[in-house]
Nucleic acid binder design. Structure first.
Lengths: 343, 343
DNA sequence: TGCCTTTAGTAAACCAATTTAGTAAATCGG
DNA sequence: CCGATTTACTAAATTGGTTTACTAAAGGCA
């Protein structure tokens, strides 16, 4: 079963392939009857122009790629990304763009990038200095960084530091001194990974509140956790078994905080009476659990929209050959939202 | 800033474009030094073969398209799809495939299909008879239907009917007679849409339990709801204001059931003491709310995996020109899971 | 030295469209 | 009635690669 092409239609209609192309793209170049005859035959034969050939010649596919730091199956387990992707896709719908998610293929982004027919990238969680990112720059492909450090490339970030600062300050002001901090593990950079700006900034925010209040920063009360409910559970348990007895908890992501709460409840603690908890992100999950999670709100949905807006701006700048414009660095605000896990 | 192509690299290396292609794809055709020289220059220039050209000639892009019934931003609000997409993407990761989501573009799937360079489709929530689906068949593009009725095309469904039957039977056996049923609105087919098989089968399952127990089926106790928490809330409220006082509730989707529970709690009802609730799907949400939702479990993750497996099977069959093999119709089992919203 | 094989590379065809330049035939004005 | 323009259509170039068929030079062997 061979897929029919423009030549097949042309032959059946007794015209040249050019005429078939015109019938769809420039009907005014042909007589009215010829156009309708060609279209009739095309529909009848089930013809549709080959998207690859079309994208090749048009030098654009109408697809944007979202470069993710983890396999898609992992990302989809994270409510933060649900909202973020919703933001991007709401903009996609408006702009008639398609969305393609790209994850590292057996560890490397290179392969994923190499075979993706996309017009530009939204890159999540990588810094400008990252190898694959600089390759894209070299190749002249437009991209926008999200949650990654950049100076030359356009980027969207949030005010991680001040959100964290507010959260820690709130707990300290309420008199808590034994605060367990479950930090993103990316703040502690493994050998092969770059230290991640987001995690660092959140840590600095917590730290600043401690310093300003004159509270000692104790390293054994700060634990790295993977950003998932399971990570939060395991780290709370581990801290408890080390003999720590926190009266409050700062989770650098909602999922971590929620996991920790479940571990705490399992140990008979009452939230918030025995343990006050503040998460980070204000993902949808925060509002679904009981008691509802106090957390640092960030505009996740808007972040996705803004990222795509910037990317579209890059295309326009490239089309008009504006290269000296300073890349836009957007920083969205954060704020503390107090709900049921604080008193 | 022009994107460099194979000819640029060839020129700089003083060889033909063919040699550059060989350096990457068939290095044994060239001398060792030439290969390494070309590769050096390619890296230096930041060259990477154009994915569209590559896909055009290879007649495959390594991308699979997931055709969704709603805009992506709507789909991502639904926990059912999170798990489903996770299932597909776990398989994608293994097979080194990329995943692209496709939603109707201003109402029409046609456009979305026309510009998508994909090797095959997983089509969610459409029947075989649907116009766009039959177009794909005509064009010889492989696809698999999920949650849609099919006889000729391969499909993945679940045992909607018996899951619903079990749920309704359980509540009836416990003595409930005033059961509010919040049905999927797709069971009541609008003018421009086809009646949706999933919704119909679930309704028939509920109905069969009523009939077998000799309980009267009262239409005013069955309400169509959109598949979201908001839909569940609004419909519970509406039913209550009509004077209905249910002692139990069947939600044809978890989101509906959860929304209804929140509306019920707001009215001072205790769940499960005053209102027993059984949802449908067993999405992750069901385990996160308090009390944990009793529901009909379906293997959502596996459904995604199986769908992609079938699609890969289609490719293989097409490659071997096997056309007379009967298309595989997979039906996965469902079962009732009792948690905290039933006594 | 002559013939055959291997090696290393290139020219040209091809994938499936779009677009530019060009060509007949028909129409029009003077 | 003749040159100019319009109409309706086509041939050929282009997009950026891959692949097949071919060629020239080098090496092997009698």
């Amino acid at each position: 079963m061979k897929r029919i092409n423009i030549a097949d239609v042309a032959q059946k209609a007794g015209v040249s392939p050019t005429a078939v192309s015109f019938a769809f793209n420039k009907p005014e170049q042909l007589s009215r009857e010829t156009v309708s005859r060609i279209r009739m035959i095309a529909v009848e034969m089930g013809y549709m122009p080959n998207p690859m050939a079309r994208a090749l010649i048009a030098q654009r596919s109408g697809i944007i790629g979202v470069l993710l730091p983890q396999p898609l199956s992992t990302v989809l387990a994270n409510p933060y990304f649900h909202t973020f992707l919703q933001g991007i896709s709401s903009m996609c719908d408006e702009q008639a763009l398609s969305l393609m998610t790209l994850s590292p293929m057996n560890g490397s982004l290179d392969q994923a990038i190499a075979r993706s027919p996309v017009d530009g990238y939204i890159i999540v969680g990588y810094n400008e200095a990252h190898h694959e990112v600089s390759l894209l720059r070299k190749r002249g492909i437009q991209y926008v960084l999200v949650d990654g450090d950049a100076t030359r490339a356009p980027s969207v970030n949030i005010d991680d530091e001040s959100g964290a600062y507010e959260a820690a300050k709130y707990l300290i002001q309420k008199g808590h001194r034994d605060i367990l901090i479950l930090m993103l593990d990316t703040a502690f950079g493994h050998a092969d990974e770059q230290v991640h700006g987001v995690a660092m900034r959140r840590m600095h925010g917590y730290r600043r509140a401690y310093d300003e209040a004159g509270v000692a920063w104790r390293h054994e009360w700060v634990r790295p956790s993977v950003s998932s409910m399971l990570g939060g559970e395991q780290n709370f348990d581990a801290a408890y078994e080390q003999g720590l007895r926190p009266t409050a908890l700062l989770g650098a992501a909602d999922a971590i905080a929620i996991g920790a709460i479940q571990a705490a409840i399992r140990r008979g603690l009452r939230v918030p009476q025995d343990l006050e908890v503040i998460g980070y992100d204000d993902s949808l999950l925060a509002n679904l659990i009981q008691p509802r999670l106090s957390t640092v709100h960030q505009p996740i949905f808007e972040k996705g929209r803004v990222a795509l807006e910037l990317l579209i701006g890059e295309w326009e700048a490239a089309a008009e050959r504006i290269t000296d414009v300073r890349a836009k660095q957007v920083r969205l605000p954060t704020h503390l939202v107090l709900r049921g896990t604080t008193t």
